[in-house]
Design a protein around this nucleic acid. Structure first.
Lengths: 158, 158
DNA sequence: CGTAGTGTCTATAGCGACTATAGAGTCAAG
DNA sequence: CTTGACTCTATAGTCGCTATAGACACTACG
């Protein structure tokens, strides 16, 4: 039961290029090759890749997944740090939610400042021009990138 | 009243390198220069940069901000698209929040699967190994990057 | 006058997790 | 023998910065 990379992609829902990328990053082992130099994967590889994808769905980054895989391959020490990892992720996710909730209230306030008729300039542009009424946000250390803040919502040096 | 780049950075809370980056990206105009080739900024530049930063805090990306600045510089057409833009951002933020809420429930379930004592292997690793009990997430099209999903939480090809 | 410290300049590379592209080789079916 | 689908490697691009290197400018101090 050997799969080529396209078949592995299909059964795991992962892109072919991403599989090669994971190999390059050391998350997946280097698989056997056919005579034509095609990669050949077995059941273990399928499970390993599924594990990786599940971790990604849980918001873990590749470095964390590398650590988890290393532990899985060789569970010598206590797994307490894995609990800590999950705890940190929960806290991080909570912070992101709070940040996004706050952003949402701002965007909703912004939307209400213009009726889209442009008879007297755009109310949204005006609001953006004159700052927000929220004292918290004036110093909001938000490094949002289209997807809003990662760093949370901490006021900085007032 | 002319500011050098470091002073502009200070009054706007923006990094010096970021200011230069915005100039390169065409968001800020090319400023005057001193004899020593130092950039010199005026009041207008301060306001323009503050506008940009406010937009970033509202989760807008640089392309969107470029459009907003172009409109501000030359508000000829209807501003209805700005309303649409804000609406889209609100929808996007809502989707992200929903996705993160869902992720949070998963992480909390995950945390409960291990007591950190490692007497019989790690429960968290086991859970990650065997998939999640949530049928929704099995096909979760989540492109999470540490900061969780951007693309939302849409089941794909069941 | 020299020098130390700070600020500025340009150009280039790195981050993370992919994604896209180019150009070549492999293989089965018609 | 050609077509098309698949695979290979290597490299560059995405986004919004951030970091680094090496050079120049300016002020203060001795």
């Amino acid at each position: 039961m050997s799969l080529r990379i396209g078949e592995l992609a299909k059964v795991t829902g992962c892109q072919v290029v991403t599989i090669r990328y994971y190999e390059k990053e050391g998350l997946l082992h280097r698989p056997e090759r056919t005579n034509a130099n095609y990669r050949l994967y077995g059941e273990e590889d399928v499970e390993r890749l599924k594990f990786i994808r599940r971790c990604r769905l849980h918001g873990m980054n590749l470095a964390e997944i590398r650590d988890l895989l290393a532990f899985k391959d060789n569970p010598t020490v206590s797994c307490a740090w894995i609990n800590d990892l999950v705890e940190r992720h929960i806290a991080d996710v909570e912070a992101q939610i709070a940040s996004l909730e706050h952003l949402k209230t701002h965007l909703e306030a912004l939307r209400r400042t213009c009726d889209g008729e442009n008879h007297q300039g755009c109310g949204i542009i005006d609001s953006l021009d004159h700052g927000t009424p929220c004292p918290y946000c004036e110093t909001w250390d938000c490094r949002a990138a289209g997807s809003a803040s990662r760093s949370g919502h901490t006021p900085k040096d007032s």
